[in-house]
Amino acid sequence: MATFFRLSRSMAYVVAALLGYAIHHILQPPVMFLTSRFSRTRFGRSTFALIARSPIGLRHVLLAILISFGAFAIFSWPSTPPVWAIVLVALTPLPVFTLFNYSGRVLTVTNRGSGDWHVHLNTLRSRDQTGAAQWEGAFADLEAIANMARAAGLQTLTLDSTLLAHAATAERLTRKLTRAFSKHGLQTDVTIEDSRALGVWGTGFIHVLREHQRHLKGHRTVYHAPLNLMTRKIVVGLLPVPRSSLDAELAA
């Protein structure tokens, strides 16, 4: 029984890892290419902040696209749709990802609608990013995110990463995050949740990223069990600082 359980866990890990590799090497390159370049422009950042004021988030638009794909397939059956229509349908998600994601040097922000953003790490490549450069890039991204958050009326920011399982890393990032938002007139209510097991499926899915994180210090990654990494979520509630308090802080 124990052997069967271990075999099932290993198979689940392999299936998740294959799915992760497929997304990483097929879907992610064009999305990151477009998103990163759009995010570097002032127009791109302004557009992201403007769209973030809407209750509609990335998942809502992707669901609408999925339903449209299904309707398209049903109504075109049994005739074969023209090639141009298939190509158009396949490329539709690309501009959506570009508009609903902000991609910085280290951090990527996903707009989930109704003033709720989710932050995750871009792929870290050891050949062109040292640990110090990654921290520098992350702090620069936090400044940009804080600037956009004020314009977008952001209410909630969520970070969830296996690299935050190490308590010292989570606390250091939280201090920098709080300071960055304070500079832009936003007060934070930070909740650092307890670390938790990511699960075999989740760990397998991000196996492709482990290749780019081998240069990190060993204590940065924490395992609950073999094939099961620990992760940690940080939830940040945001409110505008009252004008009188902000003036007093700037005068001091």
Rank of each mutant, 00 (worst) to 15 (best):
I74V: 14
S36H: 08
L18H: 12
S79A: 10
S54A: 01
F97L: 00
S79V: 03
I67F: 14
I67E: 01
R53W: 05
V61P: 15
L99K: 05
R59A: 09
L62G: 05
V14F: 15
Y21E: 11
F43R: 11
V31H: 13
F43N: 04
P95D: 13
A85M: 09
L34V: 10
P93H: 09
F33N: 13
V89I: 07
I65E: 12
H60T: 13
A85R: 10
P55K: 06
R53T: 03
L66C: 11
L18Y: 04
P82T: 10
T98I: 03
L62N: 10
M32C: 11
F43C: 07
V15F: 15
A17M: 14
R53V: 04
A52F: 06
R42V: 00
I51P: 02
S76Q: 10
A52W: 02
S39W: 09
P93W: 11
Q28T: 09
P95A: 08
S68R: 00
T47M: 14
F33H: 15
L19H: 07
Y21K: 06
S68D: 03
F48Y: 03
M11T: 15
P78F: 04
G57Q: 15
L19Y: 09
S10E: 12
F97K: 01
H60G: 05
F38Y: 08
Y21C: 00
S39F: 12
T98G: 15
R42C: 02
L19I: 11
R40D: 08
L66Q: 09
F75Q: 11
V61L: 10
G20Q: 10
V31K: 05
S36G: 05
P93I: 12
L34M: 14
R9D: 14
A16G: 09
L19E: 10
V83F: 14
M11C: 07
S79C: 05
A16I: 12
R37F: 12
T47F: 11
S68Q: 01
S39G: 11
F72D: 02
I74T: 07
L19C: 13
A64R: 11
S10G: 11
G57R: 12
G44H: 01
F100H: 08
V87F: 14
H60C: 06
P82G: 01
R37I: 03
S76C: 13
I56Y: 11
G20L: 08
L58A: 02
L88K: 08
P55Y: 03
V15N: 06
A17W: 15
T80R: 06
P95V: 11
L63Q: 01
A22N: 02
I67R: 06
F69C: 05
H25A: 10
R37G: 06
V15W: 09
L91F: 15
V87L: 13
T41A: 01
G57S: 13
V61T: 04
M32L: 12
G44I: 00
P55H: 13
R53L: 02
I26G: 13
T47G: 00
L62S: 09
V14D: 06
L66D: 15
M11F: 13
A64K: 09
F38S: 00
P95H: 07
V14L: 15
W84G: 00
R42G: 02
R9T: 08
P55R: 07
